[in-house]
Nucleic acid binder design. Structure first.
Length: 595
RNA sequence: GCGCCUGUAGCUCAAUCGGACAGAGCAACAGCCUUCUAAGCUGUGGGUUGGGCGUUCGAUUCGCCCCGGGCGCACCA
């Protein structure tokens, strides 16, 4: 909370300064981006610093150092600070008083206080992620989205939001039919030879889904008598027979098996979902005869665009026998088809209905986590959500997190990742080889907007060179210390007081507290930027500071005169352990007691 | 051709919506275990931030122009 205290104190002083020089006291007119606080990277610049004097200088036509001097005079007397210095072009560098540092440590130790304090009001957020098509197992790219979406959801919850996670299943349309055909073809091949001409004709020239999983599913179907009736079996084996209901059986069975596998993978990866939303539902006609949800929403958009065409609602129009939405009025570079001339709905139409339903369910913020190859889809979805916001008179914030590609490396060589022909590395394989914690950590060390090189050898290395274990070990070290203290018969205070901490004098101790204090701000930053890796980096940094402290300072002691210091250092260790445990938890990574 | 991401130490990446001398980890080299787990700690070397011009008190960050890498530009999903 040190940061908040500084911000408040600085804001007060700035307001009175502005009044003194005859300006209005509204900070936002002078500092539209707010009061900036920085954490100096270098020693000697204080615990926290601000460039506000430089920011105000041009507008007040006053040299930054002069402004800084005034602020200095008012701030340096506060008990919060041990000292306030003016440095460089006009930086104000603050060094906290010991009292302020202890107060912060007490807060971290308080079991009734949250380590993360949300900085925004509570909002209802839907995070949709993974949403991989049920046409094959999850691969390492999906894994990155899963780790990201899950961590983001945990972080948003920690920051006080009401979060729901959802997986959207694209279980309608062409590709599902192709999946059925692919399985059926494999099923035939397991029972007899299939000529190339038969194969091409059956697949209608398209490329089938391949890979072992398709063959396994086909084998399962053979091994499960009763799945297909004798008539269906005969028809499915006979290329000349009409393609009747049997194809649907293959589609349904394949899809269910694959979706089961995906759910297992997610469970193994410890990524829970609050819900799975099936696209199929959007296509179903209510009561057998009514209108499906997609058509309902297309009609609502169409009606709205007729009535309110001047309010900036894109209109729905017909052209070349298809139905279009004029997304170009909202920034898209071309209009998009909703209903194709062959009478089939596009995926875009389904997505509009799906997002409309999300909004109807009352969410204020919609976050979609997509693979980077879908980025061309953003403008049209933006346009769609804006349109729906107008229609429903319910403005929502729509954000897309694009997850860049993952390339696997083993033994210094890239691992082939062609999805065609089923030659990809599945998430399951990586989990079996590397483990959940190391896999998640590896995914979350880099910005999701940068492509990621996933080095299998490094990720699974169980050593001090692997950052996951480095961070986990810091936590285990604290627990080990506490066990040790317990075996020595030490009793700790049931609640901590300022007096318990007074023995802390070392720079490494102060540094730890000051650093831990940033945790809440780091977490809150994630909710704004949607960048998770700063939190991962923070934890690595904190672990390093704890290891440093631990190595250089003896904690447990038998000497009676060291008792006060021992108690204080144990308190510090407990605090570090709390922050590490909480932070790892937000990333979905375990905080082991023993390693 | 247009759009999005990207180019920083040998490698993988950071750098707080323009801030102080561009930082970590790995790799390399040199050290530290009769004491709370050495899965740890300490030190050394390593950079024209792809190139150029501009805006600014200040640019890895913003703008423009080149060069290179990834992805996308369907009545596909």
């Amino acid at each position: 909370m040190l940061e908040i205290w500084v911000r408040d104190a600085l804001s007060d002083v700035l307001r009175s300064y502005l009044k003194d020089i005859g300006q209005n006291g509204d900070l936002s007119t002078f500092l539209p981006k707010g009061v900036r606080l920085e954490f100096p990277k270098k020693e000697g610049f204080g615990d926290i610093s601000t460039p506000v004097a430089m920011h105000l200088s041009p507008q007040l036509k006053t040299p930054p150092r002069k402004i800084a001097e005034f602020l200095h005079a008012s701030l340096s007397a506060l008990p919060l600070f041990q000292s306030v210095d003016i440095a460089g072009p006009g930086y104000l560098n603050f060094t906290f008083s010991e009292q302020a540092v202890r107060r912060t440590l007490l807060q971290i130790l308080d079991p009734h206080a949250d380590l993360v304090v949300g900085e925004e009001g509570k909002r209802r957020v839907l995070v949709e992620f993974v949403s991989a098509n049920p046409t094959g197992p999850l691969h390492v790219g999906h894994g990155r989205g899963a780790a990201y979406g899950d961590a983001l959801s945990r972080i948003l919850r920690a920051a006080g939001h009401d979060v729901t996670t959802e997986y959207y299943i694209n279980d309608a349309g062409n590709q599902m039919e192709m999946l059925g055909r692919s399985t059926c073809l494999a099923w035939r091949k397991l029972q007899r030879t299939v000529s190339e001409s038969e194969e091409t004709a059956f697949l209608k020239g398209a490329t089938p889904y391949k890979g072992d999983y398709i063959r396994e599913i086909a084998q399962e179907m053979i091994d499960s008598p009763g799945l297909l009736s004798p008539e269906e079996t005969r028809a499915a084996l006979d290329p000349l027979a009409p393609e009747t209901g049997y194809l649907g059986k293959f589609t349904e069975y394949s899809q269910n098996r694959i979706m089961d596998g995906i759910r297992e993978d997610l469970q193994k990866f410890e990524v829970p979902f609050d819900g799975f939303f099936s696209e199929k539902i959007l296509h179903e006609k209510k009561g057998g005869e009514g209108t499906d949800a997609i058509s309902v929403w297309i009609n609502r958009v169409r009606e709205a665009s007729l009535q309110e065409s001047e309010a900036g609602v894109p209109d729905v129009y017909e052209s070349d026998g298809a139905l279009w939405l004029r997304t170009t009025v909202l920034g898209d570079d071309k209009d998009r088809v909703l209903l194709r001339s062959d009478g089939r709905l596009t995926y875009f139409a389904a997505d509009i209905a799906y997002h409309a339903l999300k909004m109807e369910r009352g969410f204020d913020v919609l976050i979609d986590v997509w693979g980077a190859d879908h980025h061309g889809y953003i403008p049209r979805m933006n346009a769609a959500v804006k349109t729906l916001s107008l229609i429903l008179d319910h403005p929502v914030e729509f954000r897309v997190a694009l997850i860049q590609l993952v390339s696997l490396v083993r033994d210094g060589r890239p691992v082939s990742m062609s999805t065609r022909g089923g030659e990809f590395v599945t998430l399951r394989e990586v989990l079996d080889e590397v483990g959940v914690d190391a896999t998640r950590f590896s995914y979350l060390t880099r910005s999701h907007e940068s492509s990621l090189e996933f080095d299998l050898n490094k990720a699974k290395e169980r050593s001090m060179d692997n950052p996951v274990y480095y961070v986990q070990y810091a936590h285990a070290r604290v627990r080990s210390l506490l066990r040790q203290a317990e075996t020595r018969g030490l009793t700790l205070p049931s609640s901590w007081t300022d007096g318990d901490l007074e023995a802390l004098r070392e720079p490494a101790e102060r540094d730890l507290v000051r650093f831990m204090d940033r945790f809440s701000a780091v977490v809150n930053d994630v909710t704004r930027s949607l960048e998770i890796h700063p939190l991962t980096e923070f934890l690595t940094d904190l672990a390093g500071r704890y290891h440093h402290f631990y190595f250089h300072h003896r904690i447990l002691s038998q000497e009676p005169q060291d008792r006060g210091l021992m108690i204080a250092r144990i308190a510090l260790s407990i605090a570090a352990g709390r922050v590490l445990e909480k932070g790892l938890g937000l990333l979905g990574i375990s905080a082991p007691d023993v390693m």
